[in-house]
Protein backbone atom coordinates (compact mmCIF):
# COMPACT_ATOMS: atom_id res chain seq x y z
CA UNK A 1 0.00 0.00 0.00
CA UNK A 2 1.20 3.50 -0.84
CA UNK A 3 2.97 5.35 1.92
CA UNK A 4 3.60 2.39 4.22
CA UNK A 5 7.07 3.82 4.63
CA UNK A 6 9.80 1.42 5.68
CA UNK A 7 7.26 -1.34 6.28
CA UNK A 8 6.73 -1.59 2.53
CA UNK A 9 8.52 -4.34 0.61
CA UNK A 10 9.74 -1.50 -1.61
CA UNK A 11 11.71 -0.03 1.26
CA UNK A 12 12.67 -2.62 3.85
CA UNK A 13 15.87 -4.65 3.81
CA UNK A 14 15.61 -8.29 2.71
CA UNK A 15 17.61 -11.49 2.27
CA UNK A 16 15.91 -12.90 -0.80
CA UNK A 17 19.22 -13.73 -2.49
CA UNK A 18 20.54 -15.60 0.52
CA UNK A 19 17.19 -17.38 0.99
CA UNK A 20 16.94 -18.08 -2.76
CA UNK A 21 13.40 -16.65 -2.87
CA UNK A 22 11.93 -15.89 -6.30
CA UNK A 23 11.24 -12.18 -6.56
CA UNK A 24 9.49 -10.00 -9.11
CA UNK A 25 8.05 -6.66 -10.08
CA UNK A 26 4.35 -5.91 -10.28
CA UNK A 27 3.84 -2.66 -12.16
CA UNK A 28 0.49 -0.91 -11.95
CA UNK A 29 -0.29 2.01 -14.29
CA UNK A 30 -3.44 2.91 -12.38
CA UNK A 31 -1.27 4.62 -9.75
CA UNK A 32 1.72 5.61 -11.90
CA UNK A 33 2.16 9.37 -12.07
CA UNK A 34 4.69 9.29 -14.90
CA UNK A 35 7.38 11.03 -12.87
CA UNK A 36 10.17 8.94 -14.46
CA UNK A 37 11.97 8.69 -11.14
CA UNK A 38 12.40 4.98 -11.87
CA UNK A 39 14.12 5.72 -15.17
CA UNK A 40 16.50 8.20 -13.59
CA UNK A 41 17.24 6.09 -10.51
CA UNK A 42 18.05 3.14 -12.76
CA UNK A 43 20.48 5.13 -14.86
CA UNK A 44 22.07 6.71 -11.81
CA UNK A 45 22.58 3.51 -9.85
CA UNK A 46 23.73 1.44 -12.81
CA UNK A 47 25.70 4.28 -14.39
CA UNK A 48 23.95 3.78 -17.70
CA UNK A 49 25.03 6.48 -20.17
CA UNK A 50 22.52 8.98 -21.54
CA UNK A 51 21.72 8.04 -25.09
CA UNK A 52 20.96 11.26 -26.85
CA UNK A 53 18.92 14.42 -26.44
CA UNK A 54 16.19 13.86 -29.02
CA UNK A 55 12.75 15.29 -28.55
CA UNK A 56 10.18 12.83 -29.86
CA UNK A 57 6.85 14.62 -29.96
CA UNK A 58 5.31 11.43 -28.60
CA UNK A 59 3.48 12.88 -25.62
CA UNK A 60 6.01 13.24 -22.76
CA UNK A 61 8.02 10.18 -23.81
CA UNK A 62 11.45 11.16 -25.09
CA UNK A 63 12.94 7.81 -24.18
CA UNK A 64 11.12 5.71 -26.77
CA UNK A 65 11.86 2.10 -25.95
CA UNK A 66 13.91 -0.21 -23.79
CA UNK A 67 17.41 -0.89 -25.01
CA UNK A 68 21.06 -1.25 -24.13
CA UNK A 69 21.07 2.15 -22.43
CA UNK A 70 17.45 2.28 -21.26
CA UNK A 71 16.53 -0.41 -18.74
CA UNK A 72 13.44 1.35 -17.45
CA UNK A 73 11.09 3.13 -19.82
CA UNK A 74 7.99 5.04 -18.79
CA UNK A 75 5.35 4.99 -21.51
CA UNK A 76 2.88 7.83 -22.06
CA UNK A 77 -0.31 6.70 -23.81
CA UNK A 78 -2.87 9.25 -24.93
CA UNK A 79 -6.00 7.31 -25.76
CA UNK A 80 -9.59 8.14 -26.66
CA UNK A 81 -10.96 5.97 -23.89
CA UNK A 82 -12.17 6.62 -20.36
CA UNK A 83 -9.99 5.72 -17.36
CA UNK A 84 -12.24 4.14 -14.78
CA UNK A 85 -15.00 6.61 -13.98
CA UNK A 86 -12.74 9.59 -14.52
CA UNK A 87 -14.36 12.85 -15.61
CA UNK A 88 -12.03 14.70 -17.96
CA UNK A 89 -13.52 18.13 -18.56
CA UNK A 90 -15.72 18.24 -21.64
CA UNK A 91 -14.40 14.88 -22.80
CA UNK A 92 -16.51 11.80 -22.22
CA UNK A 93 -19.09 13.64 -20.14
CA UNK A 94 -21.67 11.51 -21.87
CA UNK A 95 -24.11 14.37 -22.49
CA UNK A 96 -25.19 16.16 -25.65
CA UNK A 97 -22.21 18.47 -26.21
CA UNK A 98 -19.76 15.89 -24.85
CA UNK A 99 -16.53 15.20 -26.76
CA UNK A 100 -14.82 11.83 -27.28
CA UNK A 101 -13.44 10.41 -24.05
CA UNK A 102 -9.75 10.80 -23.25
CA UNK A 103 -7.23 9.28 -20.91
CA UNK A 104 -3.50 9.54 -20.25
CA UNK A 105 -1.93 6.32 -19.08
CA UNK A 106 1.63 5.86 -17.78
CA UNK A 107 3.34 2.50 -17.55
CA UNK A 108 6.92 1.82 -16.54
CA UNK A 109 8.28 -0.92 -18.79
CA UNK A 110 11.25 -3.11 -17.94
CA UNK A 111 12.89 -6.45 -18.78
CA UNK A 112 10.33 -9.12 -18.06
CA UNK A 113 12.73 -11.64 -16.51
CA UNK A 114 10.96 -14.43 -18.33
CA UNK A 115 10.34 -17.85 -16.86
CA UNK A 116 11.60 -19.19 -20.23
CA UNK A 117 14.02 -16.46 -21.27
CA UNK A 118 14.81 -16.30 -24.97
CA UNK A 119 17.92 -14.24 -24.38
CA UNK A 120 19.29 -16.69 -21.84
CA UNK A 121 18.62 -19.73 -24.02
CA UNK A 122 20.21 -18.07 -27.03
CA UNK A 123 23.41 -16.89 -25.41
CA UNK A 124 26.36 -18.97 -26.74
CA UNK A 125 28.83 -17.71 -24.16
CA UNK A 126 26.79 -18.46 -21.06
CA UNK A 127 27.01 -14.78 -20.26
CA UNK A 128 23.31 -14.68 -19.42
CA UNK A 129 22.43 -16.60 -16.27
CA UNK A 130 19.47 -17.19 -13.95
CA UNK A 131 20.14 -15.82 -10.46
CA UNK A 132 19.13 -17.18 -7.06
CA UNK A 133 16.10 -14.89 -7.08
CA UNK A 134 14.98 -16.14 -10.49
CA UNK A 135 16.01 -13.03 -12.37
CA UNK A 136 17.88 -13.09 -15.68
CA UNK A 137 21.32 -11.50 -15.51
CA UNK A 138 23.81 -10.55 -18.21
CA UNK A 139 27.42 -10.88 -17.09
CA UNK A 140 28.98 -7.98 -18.88
CA UNK A 141 32.52 -9.35 -18.59
CA UNK A 142 31.57 -12.59 -20.36
CA UNK A 143 29.42 -11.20 -23.17
CA UNK A 144 31.27 -11.02 -26.47
CA UNK A 145 28.57 -9.10 -28.26
CA UNK A 146 27.45 -11.80 -30.71
CA UNK A 147 24.04 -10.17 -30.74
CA UNK A 148 22.02 -13.38 -30.75
CA UNK A 149 20.11 -12.53 -27.57
CA UNK A 150 18.92 -9.37 -29.29
CA UNK A 151 16.88 -11.28 -31.87
CA UNK A 152 15.89 -13.95 -29.36
CA UNK A 153 14.03 -11.74 -26.90
CA UNK A 154 10.31 -11.90 -27.65
CA UNK A 155 9.86 -8.53 -25.92
CA UNK A 156 12.62 -6.60 -27.70
CA UNK A 157 14.26 -5.69 -24.43
CA UNK A 158 17.95 -6.56 -24.59
CA UNK A 159 20.19 -4.83 -27.11
CA UNK A 160 23.84 -4.39 -28.03
CA UNK A 161 25.25 -1.01 -27.02
CA UNK A 162 26.53 0.98 -30.01
CA UNK A 163 29.68 3.08 -30.19
CA UNK A 164 30.63 5.61 -28.97
CA UNK A 165 28.85 4.96 -25.70
CA UNK A 166 30.80 3.72 -22.71
CA UNK A 167 31.19 -0.09 -22.64
CA UNK A 168 29.96 -0.38 -26.24
CA UNK A 169 29.70 -3.75 -28.01
CA UNK A 170 28.18 -5.71 -25.16
CA UNK A 171 24.55 -6.58 -24.65
CA UNK A 172 22.75 -4.82 -21.80
CA UNK A 173 19.42 -4.88 -20.02
CA UNK A 174 17.90 -4.57 -16.57
CA UNK A 175 20.01 -6.47 -14.01
CA UNK A 176 17.12 -6.52 -11.54
CA UNK A 177 19.68 -4.67 -9.45
CA UNK A 178 21.27 -7.98 -8.56
CA UNK A 179 24.14 -6.09 -6.94
CA UNK A 180 21.73 -4.24 -4.65
CA UNK A 181 19.68 -7.32 -3.92
CA UNK A 182 22.76 -9.28 -2.88
CA UNK A 183 23.26 -6.79 -0.08
CA UNK A 184 19.60 -6.79 0.91
CA UNK A 185 18.67 -3.59 -0.90
CA UNK A 186 15.58 -3.03 -3.02
CA UNK A 187 16.03 -2.37 -6.77
CA UNK A 188 16.62 1.32 -7.32
CA UNK A 189 13.55 1.85 -9.50
CA UNK A 190 11.13 0.34 -7.00
CA UNK A 191 12.86 2.11 -4.13
CA UNK A 192 12.20 5.58 -5.56
CA UNK A 193 8.73 5.00 -6.96
CA UNK A 194 6.64 7.51 -4.99
CA UNK A 195 3.29 5.79 -5.50
CA UNK A 196 4.42 2.18 -5.48
CA UNK A 197 3.35 1.77 -9.05
CA UNK A 198 6.36 -0.51 -9.20
CA UNK A 199 6.06 -3.07 -6.44
CA UNK A 200 9.05 -5.25 -5.64
CA UNK A 201 8.65 -8.40 -3.58
CA UNK A 202 8.20 -12.17 -3.46
CA UNK A 203 6.85 -13.39 -6.77
CA UNK A 204 4.11 -15.47 -5.13
CA UNK A 205 2.92 -12.55 -2.98
CA UNK A 206 2.94 -10.22 -5.96
CA UNK A 207 0.83 -12.60 -8.06
CA UNK A 208 -1.81 -12.67 -5.32
CA UNK A 209 -1.65 -8.91 -4.83
CA UNK A 210 -1.95 -8.37 -8.58
CA UNK A 211 -5.03 -10.51 -9.07
CA UNK A 212 -6.71 -8.77 -6.14
CA UNK A 213 -5.81 -5.40 -7.62
CA UNK A 214 -7.32 -6.34 -10.98
CA UNK A 215 -10.52 -7.44 -9.28
CA UNK A 216 -10.65 -4.25 -7.24
CA UNK A 217 -10.13 -2.05 -10.31
CA UNK A 218 -12.70 -3.89 -12.37
CA UNK A 219 -15.23 -3.38 -9.59
CA UNK A 220 -14.39 0.32 -9.44
CA UNK A 221 -15.02 1.08 -13.09
CA UNK A 222 -11.79 0.09 -14.81
CA UNK A 223 -13.58 -2.43 -17.01
CA UNK A 224 -10.54 -2.92 -19.27
CA UNK A 225 -8.04 -3.64 -16.49
CA UNK A 226 -6.21 -6.94 -16.99
CA UNK A 227 -3.00 -8.67 -16.04
CA UNK A 228 -0.23 -8.99 -18.59
CA UNK A 229 1.62 -12.17 -17.68
CA UNK A 230 1.82 -14.65 -20.59
CA UNK A 231 1.73 -17.82 -18.51
CA UNK A 232 -0.16 -19.75 -21.17
CA UNK A 233 2.44 -19.29 -23.90
CA UNK A 234 5.84 -20.98 -24.10
CA UNK A 235 7.29 -18.04 -22.16
CA UNK A 236 5.47 -19.58 -19.19
CA UNK A 237 5.06 -16.33 -17.34
CA UNK A 238 7.22 -13.31 -16.56
CA UNK A 239 8.70 -12.23 -13.23
CA UNK A 240 8.24 -8.55 -13.99
CA UNK A 241 4.57 -8.50 -14.88
CA UNK A 242 2.11 -5.71 -15.46
CA UNK A 243 -1.42 -4.59 -14.93
CA UNK A 244 -2.60 -2.96 -18.15
CA UNK A 245 -5.62 -0.93 -19.13
CA UNK A 246 -6.76 -2.06 -22.57
CA UNK A 247 -4.88 -4.15 -25.10
CA UNK A 248 -1.22 -5.21 -24.80
CA UNK A 249 -0.55 -3.97 -28.35
CA UNK A 250 -1.08 -0.35 -27.26
CA UNK A 251 1.87 -0.75 -24.89
CA UNK A 252 4.03 -2.35 -27.56
CA UNK A 253 3.68 -5.65 -25.73
CA UNK A 254 3.37 -8.83 -27.83
CA UNK A 255 -0.08 -10.38 -27.27
CA UNK A 256 1.17 -13.98 -27.35
CA UNK A 257 4.94 -13.96 -26.97
CA UNK A 258 6.80 -17.22 -27.62
CA UNK A 259 10.30 -18.21 -26.57
CA UNK A 260 12.12 -18.86 -29.87
CA UNK A 261 13.54 -22.19 -28.71
CA UNK A 262 10.18 -23.76 -29.59
CA UNK A 263 11.14 -23.26 -33.24
CA UNK A 264 14.37 -25.26 -32.89
CA UNK A 265 12.87 -28.69 -33.48
CA UNK A 266 11.30 -28.02 -36.86
CA UNK A 267 14.28 -25.94 -37.98
CA UNK A 268 16.83 -28.60 -37.08
CA UNK A 269 14.64 -31.26 -38.73
CA UNK A 270 14.76 -29.47 -42.02
CA UNK A 271 18.48 -28.83 -41.50
CA UNK A 272 19.19 -32.53 -41.07
CA UNK A 273 16.93 -33.42 -43.99
CA UNK A 274 18.79 -30.93 -46.16
CA UNK A 275 22.11 -32.31 -44.96
CA UNK A 276 21.18 -35.88 -45.79
CA UNK A 277 19.58 -34.91 -49.08
CA UNK A 278 22.74 -33.05 -50.10
CA UNK A 279 24.93 -36.03 -49.26
CA UNK A 280 22.70 -38.48 -51.11
CA UNK A 281 22.38 -36.16 -54.11
CA UNK A 282 26.16 -35.85 -54.23
CA UNK A 283 26.80 -39.57 -53.98
CA UNK A 284 24.17 -40.38 -56.62
CA UNK A 285 25.56 -37.71 -58.92
CA UNK A 286 29.08 -39.12 -58.65
CA UNK A 287 27.84 -42.69 -58.78
CA UNK A 288 25.85 -42.39 -61.98
CA UNK A 289 27.43 -39.45 -63.82
CA UNK A 290 31.17 -40.05 -63.65
Amino acid sequence: MIGEGIKSTNQRKHSYVQDRVEVGFFTDPSVCIGCKACEVACKEWNQVPDDGFTWSGNSYDNTGHLGASTWRHVMFLEQDRQKGNQVTGPMGLGNADSEDPFRWVFLSDVCKHCEEAGCLEACPTGSIVRTEVGSVLVQNDVCNGCGYCVVSCPFGVIDRRPEPLHDAGGAFKCTFCYDRQKSGLVPACAKVCPTESIVFGRLDDLRVRASERVKHLQQSGYSDAQLYDPTETSVRGIHAFFLILGEPEAYGLPPRPQVPTIYLKSAWMSAFATAIASIIATLLAFAFFS
Binding site: M1, G3, I33, C35, Q86, V87, T88, F102, R103, F106
Partner: peptide, 30 residues
Protein backbone atom coordinates in the same frame (compact mmCIF):
# COMPACT_ATOMS: atom_id res chain seq x y z
CA UNK B 1 1.98 9.93 -3.01
CA UNK B 2 -0.24 11.01 -0.11
CA UNK B 3 -2.90 12.25 -2.52
CA UNK B 4 -2.73 8.87 -4.21
CA UNK B 5 -3.04 7.15 -0.85
CA UNK B 6 -6.09 9.25 -0.06
CA UNK B 7 -7.51 8.32 -3.46
CA UNK B 8 -6.91 4.63 -2.79
CA UNK B 9 -8.79 5.11 0.46
CA UNK B 10 -11.78 6.61 -1.33
CA UNK B 11 -11.10 10.35 -1.51
CA UNK B 12 -12.29 12.19 -4.62
CA UNK B 13 -9.48 14.09 -6.30
CA UNK B 14 -10.50 17.20 -8.23
CA UNK B 15 -7.93 18.97 -10.41
CA UNK B 16 -8.62 22.45 -11.73
CA UNK B 17 -6.13 23.33 -14.42
CA UNK B 18 -6.16 24.71 -17.97
CA UNK B 19 -3.94 21.79 -18.98
CA UNK B 20 -4.52 18.12 -18.58
CA UNK B 21 -1.34 17.45 -16.62
CA UNK B 22 0.08 14.36 -14.93
CA UNK B 23 -2.03 15.43 -11.98
CA UNK B 24 -5.21 15.46 -14.05
CA UNK B 25 -4.35 11.99 -15.32
CA UNK B 26 -4.68 10.66 -11.77
CA UNK B 27 -7.59 12.87 -10.66
CA UNK B 28 -11.22 11.76 -10.53
CA UNK B 29 -12.43 15.02 -12.01
CA UNK B 30 -10.42 17.30 -14.27
Amino acid sequence: RWVMKAKERGATIIHVDPRFSRTSALADIW
